[in-house]
Design a protein around this nucleic acid. Structure first.
Lengths: 212, 212
DNA sequence: TAGATTGTTAATCGATTAACAATC
DNA sequence: TAGATTGTTAATCGATTAACAATC
């Protein structure tokens, strides 16, 4: 009975942000209580699945007949996902996608705070984008080390991605969010999430094929 | 035995683009044959899994002792994923993310050809971004209908996403790639792929938590 | 021929769903 | 009390992995 820290499956982790959005929507409509049935119907999921997911993250048991308190649930999911305490991150590559991510203010809501940017283009170095300063990509390792940042977002072209990731890791980064269209080969001790647009598109176009 | 059309699981569909990248890399190194063992090792997957996936898409059976012919396999995956014949798409919302996607030339490699853009910002309407003209968002339905496009990419703010998606569908779009941070409520007859950054980030930060 | 590698059948694993007793 | 809703135990489903005979 050591392991009191509940661990969510990847599938559950993918659903939690959806619950959060749904609950916030309900809250803004003045709804105070929700049942797992309601959530399941609202999101087209199975009610038992929802109940299991919520049981995992909820600090308070749901009450028969009443269900869960929306505000409590929101707080619990926020805390479970770590959205309530911000983590600093750096971004490497301030081209189209990189600057779009920098410009997107919404990451704050997910507990992500981008504190620094890097690029190899000298025209960009020293500039500020959305009040984040762009540093020279040569300085990744030392700057990351100085600021003790643990998350790196990679938005460089394919060819540079592996190198950039390694520099980030040398500086102490332990989690990499990779938007470059390539899979990175990194030590097991580093968490990597590949944002694979090709794979996404593959799924979409297969579904389209089935439909047409 | 009706169903000769092989259908890949979602998990397989996610792996296929990775095989493709790996194979192209091998090809550029002059490698002519690959075994499923090689691929599995290169991508950190199970060899049987790779063999099953490849069997699904390959037009030619692998040969014992030899394995598969790299060039054939590349062609087969390309064709299976529909990367070899381009599909037209429109993009709605040419803000940070939208214009980044427009600026990214790489979609051509995945058979996606963005032919038209829409925005509600009058300062953008009529302009060209990466040689794609921006139209008034009011004209989505009619323009989409005229051009007979089947894929719509949604890059508008959360609040506008549902409305935009419905307009696209009215115009005949059958697949929606949604980058807005909200889940869309759409008819079953439309394929939707949500690019849920919040969910991605959730997975990454949970893994980071486990590591630290 | 010998052995690497294939494709397939069976076992395992994990996640989803169904059934149901407990309870506010 | 009656019934909606909970949490849990058992059954189902699908995907991954292991075992192995077939073969170039």
């Amino acid at each position: 009975m050591q392991n009191k820290v509940k661990s969510a499956s990847k599938a559950t982790l993918l659903r939690l942000p959806r619950y959060l959005r749904y609950l916030k929507e309900q809250q803004s409509n003045g709804v105070v209580n929700v049942s797992s049935t309601m959530v399941a119907e609202g999101l087209n999921l199975n009610a038992v699945q929802v109940r299991k997911d919520l049981a995992l993250v909820s600090s308070v048991a749901g009450k028969p007949k009443l269900g869960f308190v929306v505000s409590e649930l929101i707080e619990d999911i926020n805390s479970f996902l770590g959205y309530d305490n911000t983590t600093d991150a750096v971004i490497v590559g301030v081209g189209g996608l990189g600057s779009a991510l920098l410009g997107y203010g919404g990451f704050k809501n997910y507990g992500l705070n981008i504190v620094m940017a890097f690029d190899s283009n000298s025209a960009l170095i020293g500039k500020k984008i959305n009040s984040v300063t762009v540093y020279n990509a040569d300085e990744i390792t030392e700057e990351v080390q100085k600021s003790n940042v643990k998350i790196g977002i990679v938005c460089v072209p394919k060819a540079a991605a592996q190198d950039v990731a390694e520099k980030l890791i040398s500086g102490g980064v332990r989690a990499i969010w990779n938007f470059a269209p390539t899979h990175l080969n990194l030590p097991e001790t580093v968490a990597v999430k590949n944002e694979d647009m090709a794979a996404s598109l593959a799924i979409l176009s297969k579904r389209l094929e089935q439909i047409l």
